[in-house]
Design a protein around this nucleic acid. Structure first.
Lengths: 341, 341
DNA sequence: TTGTAGGCGTTATCAA
DNA sequence: TTGATAACGCCTACAA
């Protein structure tokens, strides 16, 4: 078996300096495009660097510059399509400031979230974005300005870019209430207890409509489709079934619809189901999903913009981002009883 | 506006050394858990480090160690659910070797792919995984062993972990042919020309079945759902429509099914649609999608394992991974004509 | 316009 | 068991 070999000695500015017959510091300046280098020298060095396959050593640079030019993004579940536009917003804004993006996926594991932040800290990134953080706020407070860190959607965070979750959820609830539903179920997601704005909105909407809160109508989605089947069974087992369900997100809603169908309930005829997130496939499932769309692109943009200001030593106020929008499609309709009457 | 401040001076081993009244080198040893440090000293230093909030400086470490303990993953589209299990496989295997994972999402942009590899190079990562690379092989060959780099699914790559794409696609085609389809459409994805194993399989299967290849039946998915609507229109406009379509992936298949329905064609009664990838929602859309599942977890695992061997100076052979599996659900059925007869 | 020198934080080696 | 030292690759004064 042939032995593979990695380049033992990477080309450094010293090598280039030797080849160009100048001092390493001149190479540095030349590579930075400094005016204080004779054009001829600069060009010579540039072509030499390219020829020799010079790759700057970020470690060395970061060490001396005390910054890396990197932004770390801690994503709870990168495959959640919800984050697609968010990523684009981050990238686009980062590009404007010559920052590069690194992503760590925590799969929703709280310990992994801390590990991620820790790694970014060690990497001396210029800033960290943590959307939908799972970890306790105390942990982040404990970081104590060790690094510019902005949360996305965390009311209690010092530095944050927020979208009005409650508003979006209220829109869904109002929609369902206006359709005539009185018995509405709610699917909780894997959020830290005490931090459930959707749940808060759910209860508030019920309150305002004068509807009694019934714990029987609260279900839990754990991120897997299996759990939506469980939810369907729980719904079926109820003496008095809900006529509508507000799902934690579109994946859970899609799973639930599918599971309900397996049990011969049709959506929205027998039961309405609304989701949250407006993922790419929301409009493709059958029936197309009523849901809430967030301005994810803007959230991404604003996060980096905020981070950048922080890095500049400013302390910007929490920026305003557009409100969530209700997207009414076909998975919601009037309740059976209401239609009958 | 209050001025935000970042810690000017991070705690270093020198600070700890001073506090513990020892030499920095002793701190290093202690922190490494070396046996060559008195237990008392070690413990004292450990608690001091924790107390003082010491965060190691990766830049300095990487500089002297000449390695970072990082693995870079270049993902073409992180929100493609296709990569969910892949990521898990990578993580799990990386954890075994004490490697940490960094992800860059290229959004399918070839230039971004190179930038990503470049950044990882600069970061001195221990290895790079590039699944479904878009860039030309010459680029990667040009890297010339600058770093351990393994491709996922790229036949022509020197270091690769492959899943038999052709096999999987043949399974779909055989399935459709066995159902009696003779006029089968194919949806191309955004792959570099000349590197289209699915297309290859499509044509080969047709050949073997003695069916003439008709360029009219080739459509193109560009990653957006809009393009699936276009495809539907193109299908509709055909004099002789296909009775089945093999879609590039599940997203395109789901979009296509939805679009066909908007045009009053039902699936699979009027036209069968098969996908590829078996994403989380494949079973939830209506009708549940016939598709191909890849052993993504294993692919992720094997990539890192391969990378690790490379790093050890070995040159492992391309590892064997399980074959793709055909998942028959309800989006495919016999052709209308066949059923009539 | 270019060179010299010192240091960024950490570690490995050698000496004590 | 611990300390001193040099080095990793790069950059920024400052000097020439």
């Amino acid at each position: 078996m042939e032995k593979a070999r990695w380049q033992t000695h990477r080309v450094t500015i010293k090598d280039i300096a030797r080849a160009a017959n100048v001092d390493p510091s001149t190479v540095t300046r030349a590579l930075q495009g400094s005016e204080r280098v004779k054009t001829a020298t600069r060009e010579k060095i540039a072509s030499l660097a390219a020829e020799m396959g010079y790759v700057p050593d970020m470690a060395a640079r970061t060490l001396v510059n005390r910054r890396s030019g990197l932004i770390g993004v801690v994503i709870p579940d990168m495959t959640n399509p919800f984050f697609a536009e968010f990523g684009r917003g981050i990238e686009d804004e980062a590009a404007k400031h010559d920052l590069r993006i690194l992503i760590i996926d925590t799969r929703g594991v709280e310990a992994a979230e801390r590990e991620a932040v820790k790694l970014f800290l060690e990497l001396k990134v210029d800033g960290v974005v943590v959307p939908m953080a799972r970890g306790p706020q105390e942990y982040y407070d404990g970081l104590n300005d060790a690094i510019p860190l902005v949360h996305v959607n965390r009311e209690e965070a010092k530095h944050r870019v927020n979208c009005d979750t409650v508003h979006g959820s209220i829109l869904v609830m109002q929609h369902l209430l206006e359709l005539g539903h009185r018995r509405i179920g709610f699917v909780r997601g894997p959020a830290p207890p005490g931090r459930e704005p959707k749940m808060f909105a759910y209860r508030q909407a019920l309150d305002e409509a004068g509807i009694h809160y019934d714990p029987e109508l609260i279900f839990t989605f754990d991120g897997t489709l299996e759990s939506t089947e469980l939810i369907a069974e729980q719904v079926l087992a109820l003496d008095e079934r809900p006529t509508a369900i507000f799902g934690h997100n579109d994946v859970s809603a899609a799973g639930l619809i599918h599971a309900l169908r397996d049990h011969k309930l049709s959506v929205p005829q027998d039961i309405s189901v609304a989701g949250h997130d407006d993922i790419q496939l929301s409009g493709c499932i059958d029936p197309p999903l009523t849901t809430v769309a967030w301005p994810m692109y803007e959230l991404g943009q604003q996060s980096v913009r905020y981070l950048y200001s922080l890095g500049q030593g400013k302390k910007p106020r929490a920026p305003k981002v557009p409100l969530p929008r209700l997207i009414v499609r076909e998975s919601t309709g009037g309740p059976k009883a209401a239609r009958k009457s």
